[in-house]
Nucleic acid binder design. Structure first.
Lengths: 360, 360
DNA sequence: TGACCTTGCTAAATCCATTTAGCTACGGTC
DNA sequence: GACCGTAGCTAAATGGATTTAGCAAGGTCA
């Protein structure tokens, strides 16, 4: 009765390397024609007048042999020649903040819904990889899965893989520059620079930046620009607080640890909103007030930013805008247009909220 | 230069009803064999020693005719007969809270990663529908797309459609009961009852429930049980506050409107965490304190619940547990096991946090 | 002149499932 | 005995792309 006891077992129990079971094999096994097997497995046995006993034997053989239908074969046959089917995918890392992925997914689904008609159909998939290990997804190199993909949340490792690999279908890369593909990214420096400016304008003196251990192209750009501007304007480098992950509790733990060892700060830039939410908690628990003791800037990738207490000032959150650029771009590539720009820069909006509004 | 001007245009410019362009058509057009076209389009023209001029003509014809490769054909041919490919999908509504979808997606991807080996491959798709309009996705009835799906976030309309339609592949339904399929759901009544109890134990007297206009099976169960328990224990019905959507700002607007017309309450149950976050804001803006003036219970479907101020008490959030049940179930169905339970009830955990901890 | 190579291309088999047209055997009717 | 109907099944074509084996024409070398 142990629930989930079979969780780890593979679906198929066949021995490695054995050719997959097809309806022909089942047919041979039972002693009927493939037509009979097909009819049975498609639940057409009644109208095709197959004997009940035959149906039963076919079903048993299919189960016994571990038959797995080949969808490619089915679809090829079922294909109406007047419809074009496009298979699209969003390729993203597991570790990515969900809202980002969700935005892309919803926007793509919307675009696809609009374009779907009786002659054109779309399917949208998600391909997830573990951050930095995109190359362990060799299936991406197959030309037989997708008509086009949007790739996002890659780490430098992954970018390198993409640069060498040259995927055999249209690709739009979101959030980083890659010379081999069409890219949509934040205007470089903007987020880091403006975050620094917002905090400095609030007359913060000891600035800190909070980021996760793994830096994507985007977050490392934010880090660099922030650091540069702070150095220029204050003569000092900002404190760098590194969290082990990107979840709120990671941010909370990192800031708490910083306080614990006597660290000081009065202005914090968190490279994404989950971390900012965690930082909020650590700051409050330590008895400090936001924004009077510590002003905080986040990144607008979380719809809840506005509902934190106090509402979080966000710079960036250009994701909406990036997605809005990326999706038409993908369709243009699919259409085979030749004048698709290879790089689009998006300037993120800024929302000034209470977390940086300090009484003079 | 207007960007996105072509956003609405279909990818293919062909006239409706024309059969799709195949490599045979291109071949005829150019005056070569399909083999030459295939080689060119697969970028194998060098090793196949095609003349540069031929390649160029083929490429031009393909572009001119608007060729869209048929992935079913490609995959059928490319198929290694020793590998079994499983195509799985998560079917969910657009309107669903993203974290729920993300949980299912990640858990499924994890399961799939474990099971992937050289003989077994998986693809995970997302199919989105507009809440209540699942029947507008007739492709779900095709037997040629998925080996199995997990369906979640349906409205009663959608459940009715599913009940009649009988999808031709294994299905696990998440969060509601449907006699035709295997279902995993919250233990009925539990969430509504426990939320009421938590608030009543905090000595709240005027209870309210906040939910979106559209009730899913799950949320209407929560509403009903909450109402019943409140009525039993206080002799009065709880106030029902209805928000137009499920986003935080919808919750904020609804609660604000309730206050505006003089409404009172000292205990609030929000049927999901986004709404609770919005309610927090409206409550604070109105000058009331949480939990002393108003205690709040949410639903643990948002990782940020713990990081709201004050941390939000959550009942439910059984999603993790439901997903943990549903996924092995799907694999058992795929394997053709016959003793798969048709209904699994999950008892959600409860996290008591500051939002219901009232100084006596 | 013949053996051999290279270039540039094609014919045909193949992947798997589905469906249409049609066959056989049997029973019943007139 | 001719004819029809039906139950129960099969042969073969089909969908689109890829690849292997191999052909034809022209050149090189001895």
């Amino acid at each position: 009765m142990k629930r989930g006891a079979r969780q780890g077992g593979a679906v198929s129990t066949k021995v490695a390397g054995k050719p997959a079971v097809t309806i022909y094999e089942i047919a041979k096994h039972v002693g009927v024609s493939p037509a009979a097997v097909s009819s049975t497995l498609a639940n057409r046995h009644v109208e095709r007048r197959l004997a009940a006993d035959t149906v039963k034997r076919i079903r048993e053989a299919a189960a016994a042999l571990g038959y797995v239908p080949n969808m490619a074969g089915r679809r090829l046959r079922a294909h109406k020649s007047a419809t074009r089917q496009f298979d699209l995918a969003i390729v993203t890392s597991f570790e990515a903040p969900l809202p980002l992925v969700g935005q892309v997914l919803r926007a793509l689904q919307n675009a696809v819904d609009i374009q779907t008609d009786e002659n054109t159909r779309y399917a949208v998939s998600i391909e997830m990889f573990h951050a930095g290990r995109l190359k362990e997804k060799p299936a991406l190199l197959d030309a037989n899965r997708y008509h086009g993909v949007i790739i996002t949340n890659t780490l430098p490792n992954d970018d390198a893989f993409l640069g060498e690999a040259r995927l055999p279908y249209p690709v739009v890369v979101l959030g980083r520059r890659n010379p081999r593909y069409c890219c949509v990214l934040e205007a470089p420096d903007f987020v880091g620079r403006r975050s620094a400016e917002v905090l400095l304008d609030a007359r913060c003196q000891r600035l800190a930046i909070l980021h996760g251990r793994q830096l994507t192209h985007t977050t490392s750009d934010r880090l660099a620009a922030f650091t540069r501007v702070v150095r220029e304007r204050t003569g000092e480098d900002p404190v760098v607080i590194v969290s082990s992950g990107l979840q709120p509790h990671d941010g909370a733990a990192a800031v708490e640890a910083y306080f614990a060892k006597g660290g000081k700060l009065d202005g914090l830039f968190a490279v994404n909103d989950s971390l900012a939410a965690g930082a909020y908690q650590a700051i409050k628990v330590s008895g400090r007030r936001i924004p009077d003791d510590i002003a905080v800037v986040g990144v607008g990738d979380y719809e809840l930013a506005e509902f934190l207490d106090p509402p979080l000032t966000t710079v960036a959150g250009a994701n909406d805008a990036m997605v809005a650029e990326a999706i038409p771009m993908l369709f243009r590539l699919l259409r085979g247009e030749s004048d698709v720009p290879t790089e689009v820069l998006v300037v993120p909006p800024i929302f000034l909220r209470a977390s940086t509004q300090r009484g003079k």
